[in-house]
Nucleic acid binder design. Sequence first.
DNA 1: GAAAGTGTGTTGTATATACATATATATACG
DNA 2: CGTATATATATGTATATACAACACACTTTC
Lengths: 258, 258
Amino acid sequence: MSRDLGQDVSESSTAAEGLGQNGPAPLYMQVKQMILGQIRNGNWPPHHRVPSESELVKELGFSRMTINRALRELTVDGHLVRMQGVGTFVAEAKGHSALFEVHNIADEIAARRHRHHAEIIKMERGSATTEQAIALGIREGAPVFHSVIVHYDNDEAIQIEDRYVNPELVPDYLQQDFSRQTPFTYLSQIAPLTEGEHVVEAVLAAPWEQQLLHISATEPCLLIRRRTWSQRRVVTSARLLYPGTRHRLEGHFKQGDS
Amino acid sequence: MSRDLGQDVSESSTAAEGLGQNGPAPLYMQVKQMILGQIRNGNWPPHHRVPSESELVKELGFSRMTINRALRELTVDGHLVRMQGVGTFVAEAKGHSALFEVHNIADEIAARRHRHHAEIIKMERGSATTEQAIALGIREGAPVFHSVIVHYDNDEAIQIEDRYVNPELVPDYLQQDFSRQTPFTYLSQIAPLTEGEHVVEAVLAAPWEQQLLHISATEPCLLIRRRTWSQRRVVTSARLLYPGTRHRLEGHFKQGDS
DNA sequence: GAAAGTGTGTTGTATATACATATATATACG
DNA sequence: CGTATATATATGTATATACAACACACTTTC
């Protein structure tokens, strides 16, 4: 029963003429569609073990490199999780899933040919509240580092970076000079980030944040909460606040396979 | 001068012990880093032609498949643009670059085990204003379809979908029943989307939008402007407005290569 | 019983090869 | 001059092969 993927993916049925008249989909795409189908119809629930590459080679009749490409792309898309030496598993479903790249705000501003500078507002050691402990995966009351930095684009305040850092993984955090190098850059060197999580919301700024950003009480802001992992441990949890009128989050996509 | 990438990418220098002690980066990653370096330091500006795969094979000494993987991944990351038969070029710099997946709000609500229904507010033919003409890539005054739909999650208004559609590509748009099938689903069938663009902002809703969403005048909202292409032509331009307190945009990432 | 070694299965990467497909350019022909 | 037609170049995909890296179960050894 080689090469039977259980559903026709080569034609988009009754699509209007002039559009969608593509030939058959590439093989690696057929494999992706088949697996996405199994996931979507609930046949393969989260944490389900996906057949190994060699099993899929036998089942589908394609080469291992083709199977590998399909599985690899589904992994970067966040649909699968792979562990070397162990296997491939269906990832747990995310809400409004999105894939972000992680950037350094200083680089972004530099790319716009603008000047960047940072003002350090706070730089302290504290002990974790319940919320912070959960966010960082440490126990309550354990030491945490806390920094608040305002980033400027051509002398215009553009971001408040409110960050908590796990001292076990980054013991020298407080000794750094973050007017020279952003925390993001420093942390990337110390603990190469392997994974992360974002939540984007629209909010109103707190009074002290309004002061720092020089905005009014009703100005909507873009809030990005970002947690970053390195080797399965949370390195840092940041709250990035942008004034709505001065920042946009641009993006693009290709081949939304959903 | 084979295999000289001009910068050491194999070690992360003085990183703290216990973290970042990875061996040399894989070859395809070295190629990515080299190209990203050329782009970042301005050596290869936007629209600059990147050496062809076979040229890079000669220059770097790696196999074409390795070069191809690097260029392919840089393309999905949005750093490069490739055209078959033509060449590879540096993409124009985006602000805060991000990669989104495109989802159907009805599917999302169903995934949360909630009920979804849609209320059609407007459904009309009009002629394109200057702004709409630019967004859709048609001439000013040409006919456009316009729909406004409110989506409900368990009877709670959760999104205003304000959409303009190119009639040349989707002539039967106004005849559809969007209380049964969302415009997104319908459009995906008619014109398989090949590419798209997002801009995310935090805004305040207009008075008529506040009424539809049952929110106050100062409630910050998440605004997603989304344009969708099919075969190089703009199919539709949508403005998706979410009340800030009722929606979050979640995401995750892996291996931010920047 | 605990530690060290061994084997097997899995993913991760790299290469050589081949052919398909798209685009642009040069060439021949009318 | 205009239009086919061939040719070169570039990307896109598919395969076979090989080895490396890692995890886990099992066996041996002390």
